[in-house]
Design a protein around this nucleic acid. Structure first.
Length: 909
RNA sequence: GGGCGCCUAGCUCAGUUGGUUAGAGCAUCUCGUUUACACCGAGAGGGUCAGGGGUUCGAAUCCCUUGGCGCCCACCA
């Protein structure tokens, strides 16, 4: 017999092993002719621990995967890890600094040694991550696990780089980049975040002009003053006029420039420019062919142009420069509390300094992609695949965000001054450049010391993981040959759904679309499902600096089970919306899992009591042998199956999960199982069974059948507990639940009358309770009741004990011919009348008013539809289906009207 | 500055083309230990669906508007 409570910690690991050993995770175990269903698992960074972000991703994807697997699709879920260049290198460097007191590990260890150290670290964390993914129950195909630094993936990364270079999509040039002086590398635009800071805002006299700045330290080289060409205040100065101005380190020869980039309403309407350290200024300088000069070094310190300030870090120099200008009488005014945004590196937290640097870029406006028979730019393709509906984003509102991002997309800087990653396949010899997958054969070449942005390589993830590693190892094959010959790529690409957090829509999702359409001519995925961020109970971001707010899945799983964690992150959540998670919520779903456990236990006990082996139950009794309650249960099961199937198919996971939750708890446990407990008159099949000495065996078949279906339907959500219970209730010839097929909706079991009867039974009890409450009858005191009905007699009579128990009724009479009693409280249901012979009547005035209002409404509706149908206007603009729909409505509401009319009549209207 | 989202019971949230009396979980209160489960059962209280206006026979749902909160993007020299 099962223990009284489910103990997930005791069984989960063993169940996972059983799944894995069974081969169920591989597509080879699926029907060979099944339609493919593929997910490329977003690779967790190879830097550490599984967190809630991973947990929610794994839970969602595992639900998609298990559902489709049970539906008979040929399912592939590819797991893997990402080398995460900047993040990983930073972590290892920090560790070495801390533990070995080496101030600059890059300098001390050198490239080779440091990479070795990083590799070792990554190997260890990848092992950790693998185990943690298993803890969540993720049914991914470990035999196909990939890593962004695998030789095959390195090969595709390089191939695409080289191809893009040859077609002019990748170029090398001096451009404005985001320079992180702390990490000593460039960053992409998306890796820069802005923080609002309050800093002083100075206005200085610059020749005849007054200019304002919050960054005086960039002003050393300023020799251009810019005004808007239509600003009347500065009409007397012409474009190209020059003048002498006393400035920080002596006089400068300055030139007036007119450009529309200046906002006349801001400050004094004129500004000096620093083209080397500001993107807007850079643009102005480019337009007018102005000189650009570097002021701040890549180490964040001022260069020799700063004169006496050279070598100083900017924070130190700034007040000194202001002081000097003030002494010279050039400081006009200071606004102390000026709010402005400061660019911060999301990687290292340091202040980002715009710099001009020679880097590698992806040209997003180059007309170089073959797409749908046309030559399109990268931007156009990215836009087209979503506009055309080839890729569907859930929730839809992110379409707009995506398009907006594309509109503002600038060339993507892909080179990083980091050692950990895919080294750029470019070699230099003097002024020569060689770009190729293989190093140049002759001597004297030196490879570019930079590596590629992690996102460049990992944006090929949906297909680089499907490339056959053996083929990729053959240098004689081209990339298109490799793709053409790789069986997995041919069978499983494009993938079906990409599930990830909305926070990496730009970083990754958009770039996968970019890279994959370019390199393979296919979309990477058909559906994008974006989940929201998980927050603390106060709605704050979970952060390591507040450990008390953190929920660690690795603490939760042993305590509450992976199933409870999965449910708590998915049921009641909408895609793309942030959600809050806290222990009570998880405990609630743990209770649900336990409820399911005990319901199963009850079914097993019933079987044992009846000396029936549940595993031998293979089919339902004949329809004629089913009680009304059985029929209602089976019918409801069909409705639920349909709803859950539709919900999962359309990625409405919360709704489907919620449906199952209330079906299991409210209908199956609190109603059907409770009925089972009463001394209900035996159903016809039970009578038969009685003769064979098997009491109440009839219901057992429905009980077992329903439980099995529940386990199947719930399996994607809570795989562990359902698998465990399945082993007790399955038929002897079926295997693991993970490989079981999905329940079909059996139309012959749909029985509206039985379901209606079930509702009536519930209503009868409620009516009796209402009467008790209205009459102020003490809860303990029993009453007498008469039920008057011609319908549902079988059900009500069979459930007499149930009704009596729940309604605290001492004597209950069924009377198909009863007239309303004089001294009785009575309430009418559409087909049942309940009398409780007592003093006085309950007040039905409020209910009567409600019904009257509704009736009026509906009468008006009917009138308005009639008018509409007759009006030429309506028919002229209404296609036939609209009329049909209106007529459909009319019918529905006519039916509704009839019911309301009956109730009104019953109430004495 | 541009865009997006949210405001529903004390708390956390569902609510799919507008349609019976707006739902759930937790919390609170009452009753109940009858042999699946106290990680339980049966109930109760608690909502002008942020405010205002409009469309409609009918609005939490659609439109406009005001307010509050949050996020994203751009960026201020």
């Amino acid at each position: 017999m099962l223990p009284k409570a489910y103990n997930p910690a005791a069984v989960e690991d063993a169940i996972y092993k059983r799944w894995e050993d069974s081969g169920a995770f591989t597509p080879e175990s699926c029907p060979a002719d099944g339609e493919p269903f593929t997910i490329a698992m977003p690779p967790p960074n190879a830097t550490g621990q599984l967190h809630l972000g991973h947990a929610v991703m794994l839970a969602l994807e595992d639900i998609f995967i298990r559902f489709q697997r049970m539906r008979g699709k040929k399912v592939l879920w590819v797991p893997g890890t990402d080398h995460a260049s900047i993040a990983t290198e930073a972590v290892v460097i920090r560790t070495i600094q801390k533990e070995e007191k080496i101030a600059d590990p890059r300098k001390t260890l050198g490239r080779e040694k440091l990479i070795e150290r990083i590799q070792k670290f990554v190997e260890e964390s990848r092992g950790t991550i693998r185990n943690q993914v298993r803890k969540m129950g993720a049914s991914c195909d470990w035999s196909r696990e990939r890593y962004t630094m695998d030789p095959a993936l390195a090969r595709t990364t390089n191939e695409v780089f080289v191809d893009m270079y040859k077609r002019g999509v990748i170029y090398r040039g001096h451009r404005m980049v985001n320079w992180d002086p702390k990490l000593q590398t460039t960053l992409s635009d998306d890796e820069v975040v802005y923080e609002t800071r309050t800093e002083p805002f100075y206005t200085f006299q610059y020749g005849p002009f007054q200019i304002s700045t919050s960054r005086p330290e960039t002003k050393f080289g300023d020799k251009y003053v810019v005004a808007h060409p239509e600003d009347e205040r500065y009409f007397k100065y012409k474009h190209g006029d020059t003048f002498e101005a006393e400035w920080i380190n002596g006089p400068v020869h300055a030139t007036v420039i007119k450009d529309t980039a200046v906002d006349p309403a801001f400050g004094t309407g004129v500004m000096t420019i620093t083209p080397w350290h500001d993107a807007v200024d850079f643009g102005i300088a480019e337009r007018h062919g102005l000189e650009k000069e570097q002021i701040i070094g890549f180490d964040g310190k001022l260069l020799s142009i700063a004169g006496e300030f050279s070598g100083m870090p900017i924070e130190k120099a700034r007040p000194l420069i202001v002081e000097k200008l003030q002494k010279k009488g050039l400081l006009v005014s200071t606004v102390e509390a000026h709010e402005h945004n400061v660019a911060i590196s999301s990687r290292g937290g340091g202040i980002v300094e715009p710099q001009i640097k020679e880097q590698w870029f992806v040209d997003v406006n180059k007309r170089a992609v073959d797409w749908k028979g046309k030559k399109m730019t990268i931007k156009e393709v990215m836009s087209d695949v979503v506009h055309s509906g080839d890729i569907v984003i859930i929730p839809e509102r992110f379409n707009k965000t995506y398009f907006h991002w594309i509109d503002h997309l600038r060339d993507w800087c892909i080179s990083r001054q980091i050692w950990w990653g895919h080294r750029i396949p470019a070699w230099y010899r003097g002024s020569e450049i060689y770009v190729g997958v293989q190093p140049p054969g002759d001597k004297g070449w030196e490879q570019d010391s930079d590596t590629l942005d992690t996102w460049f390589g990992v944006s090929q993830w949906t297909w680089s993981t499907l490339v056959d590693p053996k083929l990729a190892a053959d240098p004689a094959l081209s990339l298109s040959d490799i793709l053409e010959k790789s069986p997995d790529f041919k069978a499983f690409h494009p993938t079906s759904v990409m599930e990830t957090g909305y926070d990496i829509l730009f970083f990754w999702v958009a770039r996968m679309i970019l890279m994959t359409t370019y390199a393979t001519g296919q979309i990477p995925f058909k559906t994008v499902y974006l989940h929201g961020m998980i927050r603390t109970r106060d709605g704050k971001k979970m952060s390591k600096s507040h450990p008390e707010t953190m929920i660690d899945p690795l603490d939760i799983i042993p305590k509450y089970g992976a199933d409870a964690l999965r449910l708590s992150m998915i049921v009641g959540q909408s895609p793309g919306a942030d959600s809050r998670l806290y222990e009570e919520k998880i405990a609630g779903y743990r209770n649900f899992v336990n409820k399911l456990w005990n319901a199963s236990r009850f079914v097993l006990m019933q079987c044992e009591e009846a000396k029936v082996d549940p595993r031998m139950i293979t089919k339902l009794p004949k329809a004629s042998e089913l009680s009304l309650a059985d029929r209602a249960m089976l019918s409801k099961l069909q409705t639920v199956t349909k709803k859950v199937t539709d919900g999962l198919t359309e990625y409405r996971l919360s709704e489907a999960g919620d449906t199952l939750y209330s079906f299991v708890w409210d209908d199956f446990c609190d109603w059907y199982l409770e009925l089972r407990k009463e001394n209900a008159p035996p159903s016809p099949s039970a009578i038969v069974a009685d003769q064979e000495g098997l009491r109440r065996a009839g219901n057992l078949e429905v009980l077992t059948h329903t439980l099995r279906k529940i386990l199947q339907l719930l399996h994607p959500y809570c795989p562990f507990v359902t698998e465990e219970l399945w082993s007790h209730v399955k038929t002897t010839d079926s295997g693991l639940l993970i490989a079981k097929s999905w329940p079909e909706v059996k139309k012959e079991l749909v029985d509206a009358e039985a379901e209606e009867a079930f509702l009536q039974l519930t209503s009868v009890v409620q009516v009796i309770r209402k009467i008790r409450a209205d009459q102020g009858i003490p809860p303990g005191k029993e009453i007498a009741a008469i039920i008057h009905t011609k319908k549902w007699v079988e059900l009500l009579e069979s459930q007499e004990a149930h009704i009596r128990r729940l309604g605290k009724i001492g004597s209950l009479t069924f009377d198909t011919d009863a007239k309303p009693h004089k001294n009785a409280a009575s309430i009418f249901l559409p087909d049942i009348e309940v009398h409780v012979p007592l003093e006085g009547l309950i007040d039905t005035e409020a209910e009567r008013k409600k019904l009257q209002k509704e009736k009026d409404n509906l009468e008006r509706l009917v009138k308005s539809i009639e008018v509409k149908l007759q009006s030429a206007d309506f028919t002229a603009r209404a296609p036939e289906n609209v009329i049909a729909a209106e007529r459909g409505k009319l019918q529905i509401h006519t039916e509704k009207l009839r019911k309301i009319g009956e109730r009104l009549k019953a109430l004495g209207q």
